[in-house]
Amino acid sequence: MTLLEALEKFVSECNQNERLRAMNRDWTRRIQLEPDDTHRTHHLVSEAGIVSAGSGPVDNPDMLIQAPEAILTAVFSGQMTPTEPYNAGDLLVKGHQDDIMRLDILSLLIWGE
């Protein structure tokens, strides 16, 4: 699975879940994913409860996430909780802590504990 495929899976799970759509209704954020090994930038955008994904950078991001591409793929495909690589120092984030927590909560609500 590529990172883009993982992101599309993540987006699909978010958008199909009514609870998540309601939760994200007021959460408008632009998230840039930066694999530190392949340097192939991707992005996620949350707007009015709908999440979208794509390749390439995004203008004026609210959050930057940096990790090896395999870890980003594992996180966004539900094979790994974000907390595991985060607490190991393999996944670094720049942004507001509430947004970082929100992203973790999204993965918790999609894939469970």
Binding site: Y86, N87, A88, G89, L92, V93, K94, Q97, I100
Partner: peptide
């Protein structure tokens, strides 16, 4: 070196 909210958890682990 590791600018993370997990701070000491990361630093000591590494």
């Amino acid at each position: 070196l590791f600018p993370s909210a997990a701070a000491i958890r990361v630093w000591i682990r590494r």
